[in-house]
Amino acid sequence: MGLNIIVLAKQVPDTRNVGKDAMKADGTVNRAALPAIFNPEDLNALEQALRLKDKYKGTTVTILTMGPGRAADIIREGLYRGSDKGYLLTDRAFAGSDTLATSYAISRAIMKLDKADLIIAGRQAIDGDTAQVGPQVAEKLGMPQITYAEEIVSLEKGKITVKRRLERGVETVESPVPVVVTVNSSAPDCRPRNAKLLMKYKHAKTITESQNASEDYLNLSADRPFLNIPEMSVNDIDADPKWLGLAGSPTKVKKIENIVFQAKEAKKLTAGDNDINELMKELIANHTIG
């Protein structure tokens, strides 16, 4: 018997490769200059899901992502690597959501999908590093949670065994399913794209994306329903607007400041022998080292 697995994934700006043009002259972030990527730990989570699919025949892996229209890239990326389908949760009403409002929307969407045995996500996203959405979704769904997972050891007979990597050690826990698991970057990397799947899904589009498509494309997608990436909006998930977006977010941003370091009067040295020698003498003389 196959499992039903939902992978929560997020498209994030690649904050690890912030270049010089990442900030505009007025000190705000220039999002256009940051490439949008599949959140790295969500890829670790996808790999855990795909390993379960390899192990348990008939398993379905579904990607669920929330974001603007371009986040459909995340679903395509997942399809290229072996997931079976994906849903894009997108609506202007979600704009300005903090982690709690995001978790509410995601949990409502999960309730609309086929009943899952496992909901799996990266521990945290690199644009916020909060690690909150996984546990908050679990609570909203009334499911147990296993955070900091490194390996899903088994998922059989309604029971999951997971190895967790904590700050100072490892722990193995057992939980009934359904359960929400969040995965660390210490888990194995995700497998690369599969060439056959890339060919199969490269024309997969959401309804919004296919609005501008040619007639040829529309004929093609009518023949191949797997090319349609379903979208979900507020109306599809029976969400109460008061828990969504800015209104549904208890935390508000009061102030954003650009970083300006108070420049100190630094002593400037070269890499030359003389400069380094003098520096080491000085540090030894004033007992900073030695």
Binding site: T251, I256, I259
Partner: peptide, 9 residues
Amino acid sequence: FGGNIVATI
């Protein structure tokens, strides 16, 4: 945001 800004929440 990758440490480019400081936010007061």
